[in-house]
């Protein structure tokens, strides 16, 4: 993952609320089996409308998106984060995010910045013709007009973003602890292992065939 410390540039001043992942990337784009190329399908239905900001040349290639409440709600598809990343977005600023989307954003090097609605309103105004800067070091969003909004970010996730760390690798380093936990479960909650009764009813897979 590419480390992210600051994201600075033009921002799509969108502000739309309750944007679900189907708006970010419509379901018929989900058939890929790799992670790239989804930028073409991003906001397809929005782009189909005349005068939309995603086709506005002033904002083309902006690294920041400013949205409304509950961004990324709906289906859990991670394709939403891949699509945003593929269209070059590295930070989304909104008053709130769906939990699943914000998790997916982090894992794909996109910073979900939570700011109060007043700050969003101000940024929507400024972003029409100015740049916006998101700084992970100082945890602030600033504009050329001395606006300065601070935000919060989970410390661990922030570090992963800033160092471009792979979460799977970090957890695999905890292998001993995980194994100990598994041993404890095996003796204390033995029912948790899946019953083999299943073998009788025609399931494929190399384990029980």
């Amino acid at each position: 993952m590419t480390p992210v410390t600051t994201v600075s540039g033009r921002a799509y001043p969108w502000g739309a609320k309750n944007i679900d992942t189907d708006v970010i990337i419509p379901a018929h784009w989900l058939k890929t089996i790799t992670r790239t190329g989804l930028g073409r399908g991003a906001f397809e239905t929005v782009r189909a409308q005349p005068g939309n900001i995603f086709n506005d040349p002033r904002y083309a290639g902006s690294p920041i998106l400013i949205a409304g409440d509950n961004f990324g709600c709906g289906s859990s598809r991670e394709h939403a984060a891949w699509a945003l990343a593929d269209m070059g977005i590295t930070a989304v600023i909104a008053p709130s995010f769906s939990d699943i989307f914000s998790g997916n954003a982090f894992k794909n090097g996109i910073v979900p910045v939570v700011l109060p609605q007043e700050a969003i309103d101000r940024l929507l105004e400024v972003a029409k013709d100015q740049i916006v800067t998101v700084d992970l070091e100082t945890m602030t969003v600033t504009t050329p007009f001395q606006d300065r909004f601070t935000f919060e970010l989970d410390a661990f996730r922030r570090q992963c973003l800033m160092e471009g760390l792979d979460e799977v690798g970090l957890t695999l380093a905890r292998d001993t602890q995980i194994s100990k936990f598994e041993e404890a479960v095996a003796s204390n909650r033995p029912w948790t292992t899946v019953e083999s009764g299943y073998a009788s009813i025609g399931v494929e897979g190399s384990r029980r065939t």
Partner: peptide, 21 residues
Amino acid sequence: AFGIGTSEVEHVLATQTLLLS
């Protein structure tokens, strides 16, 4: 029970755990 994204699917497949708050 909760829905997860593909990165988390990968994380669970590899580690059988998730880092959660």
